[in-house]
Amino acid sequence: MEKTFNRLAGAVAHATGRPWAFSLCLASVLIWAASGPIFDYSETWQLVINTGTTIITFLMVFLIQNTQNRDGAAIQAKLDELIRSGQGKNDFIGIEHLTEAEVEEFRAACTRAKERQVAA
């Protein structure tokens, strides 16, 4: 089930980021707006666009978040491997799991190291 969801989430995220998807959405809104006079701008006419956009937005949030989570984890794994295999400090591996204050300590240490390097 997870692999199927990941494939679906990736495909939807890829497809919705394309120009044709935006054009389709824009055309839908324009057609809806143009049909307003035909339906006397009724509550049902308004409900159609509100319901449609709410459902699509609700579903897209989960699909895009899933894709971003996987992408972020993959990038983090790549960075960790570069640190591990290179000249970086291994202390930085896994800092994404620390608290914000702990990460800020690492950032401050990097700033101090940079300033020492520039001064030397």
Rank of each mutant, 00 (worst) to 15 (best):
F5K: 13
N6M: 11
L8Y: 10
L8W: 10
A9Q: 05
A11S: 14
V12I: 15
A13V: 04
A15T: 14
G17Y: 02
G17E: 04
G17P: 02
R18S: 13
W20N: 06
W20C: 10
A21K: 04
F22W: 15
F22E: 08
C25H: 08
L26Y: 14
L26K: 13
A27N: 06
L30N: 07
L30G: 07
W32T: 02
A33D: 06
A33S: 14
A33P: 06
A33T: 14
A34D: 05
A34E: 08
G36R: 00
G36W: 02
I38L: 15
I38V: 15
F39M: 08
F39E: 09
T44E: 05
W45K: 03
W45Y: 04
Q46R: 09
L47I: 01
V48S: 01
T51Y: 01
T53H: 01
I56L: 10
T57S: 13
T57D: 02
F58H: 06
L59P: 06
M60G: 01
M60W: 04
V61D: 03
V61T: 08
F62S: 10
F62W: 13
L63N: 09
L63A: 11
Q65V: 13
N66G: 08
N66D: 09
T67E: 08
T67H: 08
Q68I: 15
Q68N: 12
Q68A: 14
D71H: 11
G72C: 06
G72M: 13
A74C: 01
A74I: 07
A74F: 08
I75C: 05
I75K: 13
I75E: 11
I75Y: 10
A77W: 02
L79E: 09
D80G: 07
D80F: 03
S85N: 04
Q87H: 07
K89Q: 09
K89T: 09
K89G: 06
N90T: 14
G94D: 02
I95M: 04
E96L: 09
H97L: 12
L98A: 05
E102V: 01
V103M: 05
V103Q: 10
V103L: 03
E104G: 00
E105K: 10
A108W: 03
A109G: 07
C110P: 00
E115P: 05
R116G: 04
R116I: 06
V118N: 10
V118H: 09
